[in-house]
Computed example of a mutant assay.
Amino acid sequence: MQCAYDFSMPGLEGGTVDFAAWRGKPLLIVNTASKCGFTPQYEGLQALWSEMDRELIVIGVPSNDFGDQEPGGGKEIATFCSRNYGVSFPMTEKAHVRGRDATPLFRWLAEQGGFLARPRWNFFKYLIDRQGRLTNWFSSISSPDSRRVREAAARLVLDH
């Protein structure tokens, strides 16, 4: 059976984001965009990444699928995220996250989470447990600073 650690994607600034490198650690996968009303959520994602001492691996997947809100290339996205939000968590290159062109990772997430888990806008969040299984997902309106997201993430970090 396939799990989240079976995926890899090209990195935002080259190289590969290989999810197998984090086998045994919980993941928070988020489809992101730089010109969205939810873009300030980068700050909360960075806080989770830092506060959970990299025991929760936050992975950003930039996408231009919703409202053309991620028009830039890799270098532009990386500069924006670093300069404006201090993002230091791993990010993949821009990818499709919905429809028939969706990257295999997001097809798998949709299959695991069902119809409602398919991203309907930027900043959908997917929590993966230490076995690589999708355990929870949150829509765009659930901020990474919200109690729901923080408590769900903390449970996975503490669950050894």
Results as ranks from 00 to 15, higher is better:
residue 117 A to Y: 05
residue 26 P to C: 12
residue 72 G to T: 04
residue 113 G to M: 13
residue 40 P to H: 11
residue 39 T to S: 12
residue 29 I to D: 10
residue 99 G to R: 04
residue 104 P to L: 06
residue 64 N to T: 07
residue 153 A to P: 03
residue 135 T to Y: 01
residue 156 L to W: 00
residue 94 K to I: 06
residue 68 D to W: 02
residue 55 E to A: 06
residue 122 N to A: 10
residue 22 W to S: 11
residue 42 Y to M: 11
residue 76 E to R: 07
residue 156 L to F: 01
residue 104 P to F: 00
residue 106 F to K: 03
residue 113 G to H: 10
residue 100 R to V: 05
residue 120 R to T: 14
residue 25 K to R: 15
residue 100 R to K: 14
residue 19 F to G: 05
residue 144 P to M: 07
residue 30 V to E: 10
residue 34 S to G: 13
residue 76 E to I: 00
residue 93 E to T: 14
residue 45 L to N: 08
residue 126 Y to L: 06
residue 5 Y to M: 00
residue 98 R to P: 01
residue 3 C to T: 15
residue 93 E to W: 02
residue 35 K to G: 01
residue 110 A to W: 06
residue 77 I to V: 13
residue 13 E to R: 12
residue 123 F to I: 11
residue 39 T to C: 11
residue 134 L to H: 06
residue 146 S to Y: 06
residue 5 Y to R: 07
residue 8 S to D: 10
residue 18 D to T: 08
residue 95 A to N: 13
residue 5 Y to G: 00
residue 13 E to W: 01
residue 74 G to F: 07
residue 66 F to S: 08
residue 140 S to T: 15
residue 26 P to N: 10
residue 41 Q to V: 12
residue 95 A to R: 13
residue 34 S to I: 13
residue 66 F to M: 04
residue 146 S to C: 07
residue 110 A to K: 11
residue 139 S to C: 05
residue 108 W to S: 01
residue 46 Q to I: 06
residue 105 L to C: 06
residue 32 T to K: 04
residue 113 G to V: 11
residue 69 Q to F: 09
residue 72 G to M: 02
residue 81 C to D: 11
residue 13 E to N: 15
residue 102 A to Q: 03
residue 11 G to V: 12
residue 110 A to L: 03
residue 120 R to V: 12
residue 87 V to T: 15
residue 46 Q to E: 15
residue 2 Q to D: 05
